[in-house]
Every structure is written in structure tokens, then in C-alpha cells.
């Protein structure tokens, strides 16, 4: 079991003026499944490749079990990368592809054959030994790429967008497979994704990056309930913001005063954040206000309301069975349960 620590990691590509990864520090426990999440170009792949030794580190340290591995060549790191586009070696059979890592380790042919067979049944592609990569579908290629990485029993598994090239159905299947494999191998796994839902479904912890910088690192729940910034909240689909001034346990806003729970946020300018599903439709007599409904959208299992709150466009999620009072164009009552309000320092 191997833990991974990144210390002030920085990467400036040759000829680039800006670093692609800046001052990144991250602790990943042995056997943990961590998602590197962020929009395109934020430095996720770059980070993964620095962990795998495939790109040099400009400054900072990569530590495996506390040992600095910056200068250890990729073939000695036992941290195997699975690329987004699979990169199966095109002129090799599936058997040779999966067995490649063992061949490089001089494992004897019989043993390789046996273990390739085991791997193929693990990824449910028995009998594919003699095929060529060109004869495989995308989902099959992905599973072969995974098998090829796992056969050498790596200490660390690095997955770059493992699900992004698959259609919705295959994605669910592959996600289950990754979870199953992660559980049975107990391998420390870092996977890259730009899809927050995927990160939430798979990861023990999520590291959210913007522009080469780490913004928040924590459990999926924390990202929903305790985003560290408006940007993080927005990335997780919540833009229910309201500016105000905090004094003790009260926040004064343009639509009224709100009671809030005690928090570490100092008094002064703050932003209130609340999840769409935490807002109560109706006047509970506490933290209530009136706001116009711009749109009402029936979503089957729930109804979504676009509400104008102060200068902001909010989403509110309610019961699918709405009443007349909550029609489009109406000025309706809403309440914010005190314990569901999250406050951000401005």
C-alpha cells in the first residue's frame, strides 16, 4: 500500500510563459480513490503525468510513502498511467498488449499467458487474446488498457478521463468495474475527470483545480455543503448566491435579514450560499422572503423554479406537484432553513 504526497508541485512547459500547474500540494492516503477534477486545460493530465514520472517536475516534490521520487524514472515508479485514448499498441495482439508490462519484467511466457487470461476474465473479455486493437470497440479498448495496467499490480493507478470516451450506458458499467477493481486490488488510484458528477460517484475525495491551482480538496459531500468559494459552488451546479453584511449570527441583505448559525467567517461583507433543494417553498415564519418566479420547469421527479432573488437568478427545487401559488410570474414565498445556509467571506 502506497500513499502519495505532492508538495508545492509546479510545472512550466518548455516555451510556456505561464505554469500549467502551480503550487499544488495534496495528500492521498494509501488505497484511496481520489478524483482530480476541473475544467479543460486546468492541468489535470499534467499533474497525473508528474506523479507517473512521464513529465518532469519544474519544482516541488512527489513523495511515495514519504520517499521522494522526482528523479525515479517512470519504468521504476510502479505508478501506471492509463491514457484517455487507451494507446493500445496497434500492431500487437491483445495478449501481447496486456502482457507487455510483464514481458518488460522478464516474467516467463507461461506465467504471462496465465495472468493475461486472468486479466481478460477480470475485465470480462475472455477469448480476446489473438485480436488486434483495431478490432475492438471503444469500451473494450478501455478495459484492455485497464487490464494492461493492472496486470503488473502497480502501487499507484493513474487514470486519465477513463470514462469520457464512452457512451452513457458503457460509462455506468465501466464505473462499476473501476470501483470493483479498486476495492479488490486496493491500489491507490488517482483519476482525472472534468465531470463533477463522475467525481462524486467514484471518488473518496475530490481535488478541484482551476487554472493549475488546487481550490478545494475534500469529500464529495463537502463540495456540496461547504464550497470554499463561489467558483467551487458554481462548478458543482449551485449559483444561489446572495450578498450581505454579517454581524454575529445575522446577515443583512437587500431582501431582508437572515439568521445564520455561528461560523468562523468574520463579520463584514459575505455571500450566502444555499443548495436549490434546501430551500423551502412557503413561509415558515423564519428566514422567509418573497420573490418572483420567472420559470417553472417540470422535471418528472421534481419541479425546478427559476427565481429572482435580489439581483440574482436562483434555482429552487420543489415537489413535482406544484400549486397555483407557485405559477410562473407569481410572487411567491420561500424560506431558508438556518442550518442549511453556508456563508462565504467576500
Amino acid at each position: 500500500m502506497t500513499d502519495v504526497k505532492l508538495r508545492n508541485l509546479e510545472k512550466v512547459y518548455d516555451g510556456a510563459s505561464e505554469p500549467s500547474v502551480k503550487n499544488l500540494s495534496l495528500d492521498i492516503n494509501a488505497g484511496e480513490l481520489v478524483a482530480l477534477l476541473g475544467p479543460s486545460g486546468c492541468g489535470k493530465t499534467t499533474t497525473l503525468k508528474m506523479v507517473g514520472g512521464l513529465h518532469d517536475v519544474t519544482s516541488g516534490e512527489v513523495l511515495f510513502n514519504g520517499v521522494r521520487v522526482n528523479d525515479i524514472r517512470p519504468e521504476k515508479r510502479e505508478a501506471v498511467m492509463v491514457y484517455q485514448n487507451y494507446l493500445l499498441f496497434p500492431y500487437m495482439t491483445i495478449e501481447d498488449n496486456i502482457g507487455f508490462g510483464l514481458k518488460m519484467r522478464h516474467v516467463d511466457k507461461k506465467e504471462i499467458k496465465k495472468r493475461v487470461g486472468e486479466m481478460l476474465s477480470l475485465v470480462r473479455l475472455e477469448g480476446f487474446e489473438t485480436r488486434k486493437p483495431a478490432q475492438l470497440s471503444g469500451g473494450q479498448k478501455q478495459r484492455i488498457a485497464l487490464a494492461r495496467a493492472l496486470i503488473i499490480r502497480p502501487k499507484i493507478l493513474l487514470l486519465d478521463e477513463p470514462l469520457s470516451n464512452l457512451d452513457a450506458h458503457l460509462r455506468d458499467e465501466m464505473r462499476e468495474m473501476i470501483l470493483k477493481i479498486h476495492k479488490s486490488f486496493g491500489v491507490t488510484t488517482i483519476f482525472v475527470t472534468h465531470d463533477q458528477e463522475e467525481a462524486v460517484l467514484l471518488a473518496d475525495r475530490i481535488a478541484l483545480m482551476f487554472n493549475g491551482e488546487l481550490h478545494q480538496y475534500g469529500s464529495p459531500q463537502e463540495f456540496y455543503e461547504k464550497p470554499v468559494s463561489k467558483k467551487v459552488a458554481a462548478f458543482f451546479g449551485n449559483e444561489n448566491f446572495l450578498a450581505g453584511v454579517k454581524t454575529g449570527a445575522t446577515v443583512k441583505t437587500e431582501i431582508g435579514d437572515f439568521d445564520v448559525e455561528k461560523s468562523d467567517v468574520p463579520d463584514g461583507k459575505v455571500t450566502i450560499v444555499i443548495r436549490p433543494e434546501s430551500i423551502v417553498l412557503g413561509d415558515t415564519g423564519h428566514n422567509s422572503f418573497q420573490a418572483p418566479i420567472n420559470r417553472r420547469i417540470y422535471m418528472g421527479t421534481y419541479t425546478r423554479y427559476d427565481v429572482r432573488v435580489g439581483g440574482n437568478a436562483w434555482n429552487v427545487i420543489g415537489d413535482p406537484n406544484y400549486t397555483e401559488e407557485y405559477d410562473e410570474g407569481r410572487n411567491a414565498s420561500f424560506s431558508l432553513p438556518k442550518e442549511k445556509i453556508w456563508i462565504l467571506e467576500e
Binding site: 503525468k49 507517473g52 512521464l54 517512470p74 519504468e75 501506471v80 499498441f89 507487455f100 508490462g101
Partner: peptide, 8 residues
């Protein structure tokens, strides 16, 4: 890179 990563 992939080959290096796999141990070559």
C-alpha cells in the same frame, strides 16, 4: 510514455 509507464 505509455510503454515507459508499463515498465519499459
Amino acid at each position: 510514455e505509455q510503454a515507459r509507464s508499463l515498465g519499459a
